[in-house]
């Protein structure tokens, strides 16, 4: 080391134990480190959904012909959405449950829009590992609690699409949506 640098600069530095070269080393290694980390940003974030995938179209649905006890399957972000016109018996069944006893406590009222508590809109994506539950179409298995049944690992949802049995941790997700007219829903 003694042979590098001008003699006085070198000595001045060694007095408090810091050499000029220490500064250069720290600066170079830090720049390489920060640069390396910065290079990870595009490499990692390229895997996130691209702009076209994110530009999720909203889905508009006309439910004027949806009779009591009927459901429709719609598509939102390439995933199924179930819209169900609940029967009074189904609403009764949902309200009879002691909410605090549920795995994911929510009332039917919280899961529907004011003025339309008989229209239940949920994603048809099981909160366990993402299968499409059965129960929306005529004649499909609705499971033990009369709502939806996921055939993959046996999760049962009740008439308010709340998880009641099986491995799924959460109620079927209610997407953001609004009623633009009394019979038109816009999801997204």
């Amino acid at each position: 080391m003694a042979s590098t640098g001008t003699a006085d600069a070198h000595e001045a530095a060694t007095e408090d134990g810091v050499r000029r070269r220490d500064f250069i080393e720290i600066a170079a290694v830090s720049a390489a480190g920060v640069g390396g980390l910065a290079a990870l940003i595009p490499l990692i974030s390229q895997m996130a959904p691209s702009a076209d995938v994110l530009a999720e179209s909203s889905t508009e649905l006309d439910i004027s012909t949806l009779e009591e006890g009927q459901s429709i399957k719609a598509v939102f972000r390439k995933q199924p959405v179930f819209v169900r016109h609940l029967t009074p018996a189904e609403i009764q069944a949902a309200n009879d449950v002691d909410v605090s006893s549920l795995r994911d406590p929510q009332t039917l009222e919280e899961r529907t829009e004011d003025g339309h508590h008989n229209i239940l809109v949920v994603m048809g994506v099981c909160t366990h590992l993402g299968c499409v539950p059965l129960g929306a179409a005529e004649g499909e298995n609705k499971g033990e609690y009369g709502g939806y049944f996921c055939p993959c690992h046996g999760s049962s949802y009740d008439t308010a699409a709340r998880i009641r049995k099986g491995p799924a941790p959460k109620n079927l997700e209610v997407p953001t949506y609004e009623f633009t007219t009394d019979t038109t829903i816009v999801i997204g």
Binding site: M47, A48, P49, S50, V53, K78, Q79, V125, G130
Partner: peptide, 8 residues
């Protein structure tokens, strides 16, 4: 979502 690059 990151692994799939989408929601499904």
């Amino acid at each position: 979502v990151w692994l799939l690059g989408g929601f499904a």
